[in-house]
Design a protein around this nucleic acid. Structure first.
Lengths: 148, 148
DNA sequence: TTACATGCAAAGCATTTGCAGATAA
DNA sequence: TTATCTGCAAATGCTTTGCATGTAA
């Protein structure tokens, strides 16, 4: 049964996700459970809304794109996902729940998680507010390996 | 006369722009000159396509949005501008021609250039191609100063 | 003269929204 | 029962494109 909540296991992103839904009074509907399973059950994922839509279609159910987008957005707000905006018409959702940044290799259309300690930022830029909340920092590094 | 090419002055982004157009056999049309003037004459700018369209309208001419977009893209290819993709429906074009990265403060909708030496990246990530061309690195740091 | 550039309107595309019907509690 | 959620289709908003007209060299 999808509705059944498994016992909490701190090592599982999936269980963490279900717990977050509960604690935020968000109903564990069929759609949300199916999406949580795909996103959080098998380790870190980088996936687009369209790809997620396809994965659902390959399985037992169909979930509308509108609901997929709404759910992705909601999961982002809960901190379960991170949206990585690649360009005007490409966002990738990342289910790695450790603090990290993103490297995007343009030629290969490939995204790699970078542990946060690989990047050092000297925040001594006068315009940056002093009381900066460091939890809300996203870094996207875009590289090209070839010239055009 | 807009068409007249001023003598080259290495300190002027505007003259650099005109020189680049010439060296790439791109015709210095009225539209391109008007846009170059706005973008490069008065130091570093951060501007959207729409804002640029407005600035032109406030002046003597009208340039279609299509041409604005095409020109911005072309200038990016020539290395005269840098496109900073903020989100799905916001790109900012930056005329700073020194090597730098970008800090975007979400709550204030404000973008700040960061000198490249303020950020140190340990590129010892196994998946990164060894022969990385470092000139093609873009870094965008997005921060929120408030919690929602 | 002719290759290139412009501008309009239409198309493209990911994402969002309004709303009627469905569902969880 | 009722507040919330879903899904469809339509709307949105930025950007690109096709093509006829205009322009630089």
């Amino acid at each position: 049964m999808l509705k059944k909540i498994q016992p909490f296991n701190p090592l599982s992103n999936y269980n963490l996700a279900i717990k977050k839904l509960k604690s935020h009074n968000i109903r564990p509907t069929k759609q949300r459970m199916v999406l949580s399973k795909i996103l959080f059950e098998k380790g870190n994922k980088h996936i687009t809304a369209e790809e997620l839509y396809e994965e659902v279609r390959k399985q037992e159910r169909k979930i509308s794109l509108a609901t997929i987008y709404n759910t992705l957005k909601q999961f982002c707000k809960l901190g379960l996902l991170k949206e990585v905006i690649i360009d005007q018409n490409k966002s990738i959702y990342c289910s790695n729940n450790k603090q990290h940044y993103h490297l995007y290799i343009e030629d290969e259309n490939k995204i790699i998680d970078i542990p946060h300690n690989k990047i050092n930022i000297d925040f001594n830029v006068p315009e940056i507010p002093a009381c900066l909340n460091l939890h809300n920092v996203d870094i996207i590094i875009k590289i090209k390996t070839k010239n055009n």
